[in-house]
Amino acid sequence: MNHTLFSAAYNCLQATDPAVKIQLSRVTAEQWHTGQLSLLDDTPVLPITMAGHPPQLKLVHPRAVPKRKMQTPEGQIALLHAIAHIEFNAINLAWDAVYRFRQLPCAFYADWIKVAVEEAYHYELLSIELAKRGCCYGDLPAHSGLWDMAVETAEDVLVRMALVPRVLEARGLDASPYIIQRLQQAGSADLVTILQIILHDEIGHVAIGTRWFQHFCAERGLLPTETFLQLLKKHYTGKIHAPFNTVARLAAGFSTEELSLLEQL
């Protein structure tokens, strides 16, 4: 058995059963923390066009995903499923960052292993709530936008750090307060608690992305704000939606200058 971090990350990434992916994530994190996984690995990095997900999950165009009216039981199921899909993809994205990008500081791998374990916990919380409502992850269609960006940014760790944590995950920071407010109005206290946990942790995840983006910019002699906006215009085809969760974004490492420039976009 090849006890390298990269082979272990690949196994986490490819697991299709959510329970297996969560268990592998926790075992791999424990092996990393106890020094059982080496960073010495000369095997080639494989292109991964699609990470492991439940075989019954149907991927569709974003417009074909069920609408989420949070006041109804069906709407809450659709919302929970959509967020579970985001968190499941986030597990894959964290392990892909570990697997794909080599010869980096140990702290980089430690950070993304931490993210993978926290995303697995988020997914588990949502999965339990789905099960209470007679639904499993994979029962509803979802879209592949998050993983599409992983493929788009597979060649450069700086581009990955710019566009996955600081664009896609940061959008979650903006959306969360509105969703939480609507769920509070609907009297869904349990779901509110879960989303507050996720929001708290996601600020930390975006901050990790920001820190490493700035680290790689410094290594290459690039200006972070200008580089971020250039990469955004080059690679991101979606819309930048205001209003921003300014408090959360500032806590996650965005500068006031960046937020001002993003608002202009």
Score class of each variant (00 low, 15 high):
Met1Thr: 12
Asn2Thr: 14
His3Cys: 05
Ser7Leu: 06
Leu13Gly: 05
Gln14Asn: 12
Asp17Ser: 05
Asp17Thr: 13
Val20Gln: 14
Ile22Met: 10
Leu24Lys: 09
Ser25Asp: 07
Gly35Lys: 11
Gln36Met: 07
Leu37Ala: 06
Leu39Ser: 06
Asp41His: 01
Val45Cys: 04
Leu46Pro: 10
Thr49Val: 09
Met50Arg: 10
Gly52His: 02
Leu57Gly: 01
Val65Phe: 00
Arg68Ser: 02
Lys69Val: 06
Thr72Ala: 02
Pro73Val: 01
Gly75Tyr: 02
His81Phe: 00
His81Tyr: 06
Ala82Glu: 09
Ile83Thr: 12
Ile91Ser: 00
Asn92Thr: 12
Asn92Lys: 08
Leu93Ile: 11
Trp95Met: 09
Asp96Lys: 07
Val98His: 01
Tyr99Asp: 05
Phe101Cys: 09
Leu104Asn: 05
Cys106Val: 15
Ala107Arg: 14
Phe108Val: 03
Ala110Glu: 11
Ala116Glu: 09
Ala116Ile: 10
Val117Cys: 12
Glu119Ser: 05
Tyr121Thr: 15
His122Trp: 03
His122Leu: 03
Leu126Met: 11
Ser127Asp: 14
Lys132Leu: 09
Cys135Thr: 15
Pro141Phe: 04
Ala142Cys: 02
His143Arg: 09
Ser144Pro: 15
Ser144Val: 10
Gly145Asn: 06
Gly145Leu: 10
Leu146Asn: 12
Val151Thr: 08
Asp156Tyr: 08
Asp156Thr: 08
Val157Lys: 04
Leu158His: 01
Ala162Val: 09
Val164Gln: 13
Pro165Ala: 04
Val167Phe: 00
Val167Tyr: 03
Val167Cys: 00
Arg171Cys: 08
Gly172His: 08
Leu173Tyr: 04
Ile180Asp: 01
Arg182Glu: 11
Gly187His: 00
Gly187Thr: 00
Gly187Cys: 00
Ser188Lys: 06
Asp190Pro: 11
Asp190Gly: 08
Ile194Ala: 06
Ile198Trp: 13
Ile198Val: 15
Gly204His: 00
Gly209Trp: 02
Gln214Phe: 02
Leu223Ile: 04
Glu226Arg: 10
Thr227Asn: 02
Leu229Asn: 08
Lys233Ala: 09
Thr237Ser: 13
Ala242Thr: 15
Asn245Cys: 15
Ala252Gln: 05
Ala252Arg: 04
Gly253Pro: 14
Phe254Ile: 08
Glu257Asn: 10
Ser260Asn: 15
Leu261Met: 08
Glu263Asp: 14
Glu263Trp: 14
